[in-house]
Computed example of a mutant assay.
Amino acid sequence: MVDEYLTDRDQEEALRNWWRENWSWVLGGIVLGLALLGGWQYWQHRTHTEAIAAAAVYKEFQGALERNELDAANRSLATLVADYDDSPYTQLGRMLLAKKHVDDGKYDEAVPLLQSVIKESEDAELAWVARLRVARLLIQQGKHDEALSLLNPDKAGAFAAQVREIRGDAQVAKGNTDAARAEYAAALAANIDATAGRTIDRTLLEMKLQDVGGDKAATASATKPAPAEGQP
């Protein structure tokens, strides 16, 4: 009994000594944990609040655009950019306003909006959609080489077929039928992969290929063309 009693006292004394030496670290850890928890809850609340506010501004933006009130729409989009630049509503607003400009034939006003989406969107797919639209507009503007340099099929992933098709359109506009034929054939070959998730209009693409002297029956064995001008 005496030995057990002494052992307990030794343990208690060791615990007291440990506490005297480490109490500040223990309390510091508790305080830090509470601070992190509080910070996390504050961040969640702020994020939720900002998302609601951004959605409200985006709704105002949509309404103004539907009423064809471009000044009001531009002010709402400016608010989104200034206050909620990391919100997906900002990128969607840019895409929507760019479409409006394209419908009105104002390509020079649409391109910068889409370029901002390419640079700033955290959604990789949305950025690629914007990239494809910019390339088509550049072709419309006669800036064929800029369109080609913007579209790297090796980095396009699921958008490879669409990238190849647009590159083919650019080559046609430049008068390079051989290069266009290779791009269209590669687009059809890329689209054979059903897992890509991004489909193209095969009938239209086959017509484009035939227009430049290609054979749609040979697309299954088509090889990828070498990188065209503007590509590393």
Rank of each mutant, 00 (worst) to 15 (best):
Ser149Phe: 12
Leu77Gly: 06
Ala161Ile: 01
Trp128Tyr: 12
Gln162Arg: 04
Asn176Glu: 11
Arg67His: 04
Leu80Gly: 13
Gly157His: 10
Ala186Glu: 00
Leu148Ser: 12
Gly175Gln: 05
Ala187Thr: 03
His144Tyr: 03
Arg133Cys: 03
Asn176Trp: 09
Tyr107Gly: 04
Ala147Leu: 02
Glu122His: 13
Ala185Tyr: 08
Val172Lys: 02
Asp103Val: 04
Arg133Trp: 09
Tyr184Lys: 13
Asp154Met: 13
Ala173Thr: 04
His101Asn: 12
Ala185Met: 14
Tyr89Thr: 00
Asn191His: 06
Thr79Gly: 09
Asn176Phe: 11
Glu122Thr: 13
Gly168Tyr: 01
Asp145Asn: 11
Ile192Gln: 04
Arg136Asn: 06
Val134His: 05
Leu188Asn: 08
Thr90Glu: 01
Ala110Val: 08
Arg181Phe: 08
Val111Phe: 09
Glu125Asp: 15
Ala73Trp: 07
Tyr184Trp: 14
Ser87Asn: 15
Arg67Cys: 00
His144Arg: 00
Leu132Pro: 08
Arg167His: 02
Ala187Phe: 05
Lys155His: 12
Glu146Arg: 00
Lys174Tyr: 13
Ala182Ser: 14
Gln171Ile: 01
Asp83Lys: 15
Ala182Gly: 14
Arg67Pro: 00
Glu125Ala: 14
Ala124Glu: 08
Leu188Ser: 08
Asp104Val: 07
Lys99Arg: 12
Leu114Met: 03
Leu138Cys: 02
Leu151Met: 06
Val81Ser: 14
Lys143Trp: 11
Leu96Val: 05
Ala110His: 11
Leu97Trp: 04
His144Glu: 01
Lys155Asn: 10
Asp169Glu: 10
His144Pro: 00
Lys143Gly: 03
Ala72Ser: 09
Ala173Glu: 09
Ala161Gly: 08
Ala147Asn: 01
Arg167Cys: 02
Asp83Tyr: 14
Ala173Tyr: 05
Ser87Pro: 15
Ala78Cys: 14
Asp178Tyr: 08
Tyr107Val: 09
Leu80Arg: 10
Ser76Phe: 11
Asp71Gly: 07
Ile139His: 08
Asp178Cys: 04
Asn191Met: 01
Ala72His: 05
Leu126Thr: 14
Ile192Asp: 03
Gln91Val: 06
Arg131Asn: 12
Ala130Thr: 12
Gly168Arg: 04
Val129Gly: 04
Gln141Gly: 14
Gly142Leu: 03
